[in-house]
Amino acid sequence: MVSKMNVFINGEPHCFAKGLSVSAMLKELRLIPEKVAIERNLQIVPRSLFSQTELQDGDHIEIVRFIGGG
């Protein structure tokens, strides 16, 4: 049995398999990485580290949409 973990995404609890990477999370959420920044526990995760950054139980994730207007 795969062990599970709870992660909060934009404040809502989500259940994922342990060791899920940021890249895999985006895939599960059907989000395009080029459109968003990922904030994990009040820190932006650099995009180049998405695939090697594993989520931990209890992480607080915010999906930050890029805006460019002025």
Partner: peptide
């Protein structure tokens, strides 16, 4: 660009979505 590495596809403008 550490925050925005590449131009986001279908980026919204204020003209389209408002502000």
């Amino acid at each position: 660009q550490c925050l925005v590495p590449s131009i986001p596809p279908e980026a919204e403008t204020c003209e389209q979505v408002g502000v």
